[in-house]
Design a protein around this nucleic acid. Sequence first.
DNA 1: TCTGGGGTCCTAGGACCC
DNA 2: TCTGGGGTCCTAGGACCC
Length: 442
Amino acid sequence: MRQDRVLALVDCNNFYVSCERVFDPALAGIPVMVLSNNDGCVVARSNEVKALGIGMGVPVFQCDSMIKRHDIRVFSSNYALYADMSRRVMEVLKQFTPDIEIYSIDEAFLSFPGLRSLTGLRSLTGLRCADYAAYGREIRQTVMKWTGISVSVGIAKTKTLTKVANEIGKKYPRYGGVVDLSKGPERRLDFYLEQLGVEDVWGVGHQYARLLRAHGIKTARDLKYADMQWVRRRMTVMGERCLLELRGVPCFGLNSHPVPKKGIRSSRSFGESVTTREDLEEAIASYVSRAAEKLRSQNSCANILVVYIKTNKFKRDEPQYANSLHIKLKEPTANTIDLTRYALRGLGKIYKPGYRYKKAGVLLEGIQSDRLIQLHLFSSLYYEGREQEEKLMETVDRINRRWGRGSVRLAAEGIRQRWKMRRSMLSPAYTSNWEEILIIRV
DNA sequence: TCTGGGGTCCTAGGACCC
DNA sequence: TCTGGGGTCCTAGGACCC
């Protein structure tokens, strides 16, 4: 891996909240939060909400009084909107460089090209070469102008240090959301690392932070200079890489080509507990449809299906039951009808009456390209009608893409869908549904 | 009353094979 | 009483990320 490469991490600020604000300017400057599926937990907070001390992932019912007292505007997750806004932001970033890794819905790593390529960018940005911070400001302004989303840019030699740069940017607003740690004396970097708790380092979660603190490693700087052998022994090679990256040694490269997923999961908590097998069957059937759709969209098929159900673990006074079944398929497939058949048969084996179920899901594993299928000895892969079935799936996908998910579905998925999740505070699908498009009166 | 969903990687231990 | 060694594959569980 080249040592001289400089990376930038572009991170959307309070992304879901920012998306809501783009289409409703009245939300600017007031406290806003967005909830997880089922309106369960707080997953995005405006700065005003963060300042009130409401943490990430807190169950909503625990901050009911805060919401009332501070008149916080609360929204259900509107993934259709966020996914579309994410796509727009990424499209803007792609105009800056083809060397981009879309890391999550609201983050992307960009690689600065060598000096020679930067000259090509001069016409676009009018910058001196290697003035990375100025480049970062250009990105920030462009994304804001073209999408309305505010982003932070962290610049450094390793991914972990770009994360650090973004954290520093949050701590010091005077930097204006762009921090360049790619050059300057090591002392300066160490000064910043000292400001960060070890738990703020990318790759150090709850458990490791506790372990490290118990051994006197309290800041990011402490971790950088910790004993490497010890870190490797206690935190596996991932910990070691984390430490090396803090020292400026790149361990994680830029993956600019999306790799197919190795596992695809679809699961939901129910809006209300479910007791009947029929309701569970409907839910499982619709999760299979979702998962199979994703599977086909990456041109894969799977040969393992896992189905699971569980009761509400938070209800201590209710009888608890959770079970899952691992099913090896006779042949890899991406056909919703086949997969549904397997899943419902599996559900029949683990379902026990008399419990109040809160969550169910399916996982597809053993994923492989649909062009390189390993044949079973007595394979029925080329049975008559297979081609029609594939065409059917393609058609279903096309219709659902055009007219919205679930427009065409298996009867097994049900019609009433009593188990559906709660989304009582949903904003309109401003950008992806003609019926809900924003109307501006002048 | 109310507690999300979807991923990744690594390791240890057991089964199995020669 | 004595009871090999080394490799591979798979799985479960634990950690992390957003």
